[in-house]
Nucleic acid binder design. Structure first.
Lengths: 255, 255
DNA sequence: CAGGTCTGTTGCGATTAGGGCAACTCCTAT
DNA sequence: ATAGGAGTTGCCCTAATCGCAACAGACCTG
């Protein structure tokens, strides 16, 4: 078996960049020695790698403190992802939903084994201080995940989650529950959570489809039960309506 | 002369990513052979490099067409750091604006229906004009607010401000005025106020966008009419230019 | 359906680039 | 002065990459 692993150089560079992208390091940056010990690598390697990354604009260095932080080029590349374009288009629809519900709304996609939040629009704090943007949550543990899997067959869901269920030692009935929720989404059009994962929190999610009819994203609203609980169904309907508008903007036509 | 070149691997990977980031390729993606000839490289190398980049989420592949495009990981890495980067970079750009205009400049974000000032930079000669930092002003009553709502549709603006207009008993025509100002920002690129809210005070504001194209902040300059009034348009243009530079540093690329 | 031409992937040896160690330079604190 | 920490560089050896060429499919086309 050839099974070529990811080359060491690429892996190392991405580890460094991921480290610099961690919220706790973005403001101050990190020094060579610090990065080396956090990654368990030779500082000489880290020093050389960072020099190269800097030469390419992937990271940039503070002249005085010698600390590294992410560079302009990463942002330039990020701007060209499909995710960036989707987020840009969706911001408009999310804002209307937020204005109507006066609660925070998120745009989520399925990436890797989890749900990645692309965009958070919040009514009380438009500066994304508490933003979930860029964060990933296990798909079976959020209503957005159920929605994103809504079109899958039970078999697909089973095999998709099998590894994750095993690795994280989840109760066996989680899969059944997941399948039930997915069936629910299909019949109702949206998903609802009532204090299921966290006491006091409720939420709804609705699917966004592209021109092929595939579910490519979910719009997700969460809030304290005290505020949103009484109107949860209404919120679900509204979220669904906005998701459908966004889908239409993406070229989706319900056949 | 040491002249250490950028390692071949990194250089190659970034060339590939840059190619995929070109506007003409972002939507359709590119195949292995195409990339190889555009870069003048062995297609075997390109094939292997892309496989590794895909394993790391830096690029993703269309199952059917086999074409590669930029991956979600770039987005995720950037998303977590934009705010921190804004905070870090803004002072630098504001300082340049202040040096050019010799007037106080502010960095503002939307917070609920208000505009929050994150940062104020004053000309060196001015004794600190009792910084506005941390202060909130109703969004419809400041040019920074107009700028921050510049991308919204009239419907969104209406429903967003509806509650505030009612609660504070504002004249009914304020909404129309707000919409007119927003339209103005769209066509001109910046907002200008001439003694509108306070006699003797004029000001300009310009939008700051992130890598997704979303308006995340505004740069705002206010001053006594006697000083800034005669060059208000010039100040607006300069503020816009600086705001665009800051946007570019955050990865924004027009259209 | 055979043949041609695309596409992308893989095997393999020579070559080159990267890894680790240790020495070295600054800078700061005491 | 001295000690300690941060970051860089030199050097050698190993392990990874390069480039070639062969290979495997997909898609036309007569």
């Amino acid at each position: 078996m050839t099974l070529t692993q990811t080359p060491a150089g690429l892996r190392r560079d991405l580890e460094i960049i991921d480290l610099l992208a961690r919220p706790e390091h973005t403001s101050r940056g990190l020094g060579v020695t610090r990065i080396a010990e956090l990654l368990g690598r030779e500082k000489s390697q880290v020093s050389r790698a960072l020099r190269n990354l800097e030469a390419e604009g992937m990271v940039e260095r503070d002249r005085e403190s010698l600390a590294y932080r992410l560079g302009w080029r990463l942002y330039a590349m990020a701007a060209r992802t499909v995710e960036a374009r989707l987020a840009h288009l969706a911001s408009h629809y999310l804002r209307r939903l937020v204005a109507a519900l006066n609660e925070t709304a998120h745009l989520c996609v399925l990436r890797g084994t989890g749900v990645l939040t692309l965009l958070s629009i919040t009514p009380s704090n438009a500066y994304r201080a508490l933003g979930w943007e860029g964060m990933t949550v296990p798909a079976p543990l959020t209503s957005a995940g159920w929605v994103l899997m809504a079109d899958w067959t039970p078999d697909t869901v089973r095999s998709w989650t099998a590894g994750w269920l095993r690795e994280t030692n989840r109760p066996a009935d989680l899969l059944d529950h997941l399948l039930a929720q997915i069936a629910d989404v299909r019949s109702r059009g949206y998903a609802a959570v009532d204090e299921e994962f966290e006491v006091g929190l409720v939420g709804v999610s609705a699917p966004v489809r592209d021109y092929r009819g595939l579910i490519i994203a979910a719009i997700h609203v969460t809030a304290p039960k005290a505020r949103l609980g009484p109107h949860l169904d209404d919120a679900g309907e509204r979220t669904l309506a906005i998701a459908q508008e966004l889908s239409a903007a993406l070229g989706y036509t319900p056949h």
